[in-house]
Amino acid sequence: MLPKADSNDPTMPDHEQLLLAVARNRDSTAFRALFDHFAPRIKAYMRRLGADGSAAEELVQDVMMAVWLRADRFDPTLASASTWIYTIARNRRIDRVRQERRPELQPDDLAPDGGEEPPPDHQFEAAETASRLRAVIGNLPPEQADVLRLAYYEDKVHTEISAERGIPLGTVKTRLRLALGRLRRAFGEGA
């Protein structure tokens, strides 16, 4: 499927611009717009992952506080607004619900031996990539979409998906790898 230009939908608010406005000017109108869009989705994400209504809203508050406080770390050349907010939501949930600290790579962690710089990280035009990815995810065969959703929405590692669905681990891996291959091609098209 050909990628759609994101200009197809002129009414879609540009969340990246809103985040940058929050970072630069502490723009509370922009923040409200981000809240209105993302808070109900973050809540849905937390509910899928097992939080009850009030716990989910607590987590929504946590995530949106982090969005306000850390907006200066958002880099639109590395991630879309929803990707960036997704990573915050994922990490806050792990910290709060599992009481674990998620081991994360930080920007100054690269080249730990002080050696030469590694090749530059993959950069992409976030909005275009998102629309290509959306098309790829929407067109995945059901069994591939199923394992992907279980991984993201139900906190299941691939071995648990195998046990839960009663399908052999090898089959789960094959489905995930096929889905990953399709996702990778969505990025390849933009390179």
Partner: peptide
């Protein structure tokens, strides 16, 4: 894969 998570988050039916 995080961009994939971003798309899945954006496409969840809002609550």
């Amino acid at each position: 894969l995080e961009a994939c998570g971003g798309v899945l988050l954006a496409d969840l039916p809002p609550e």
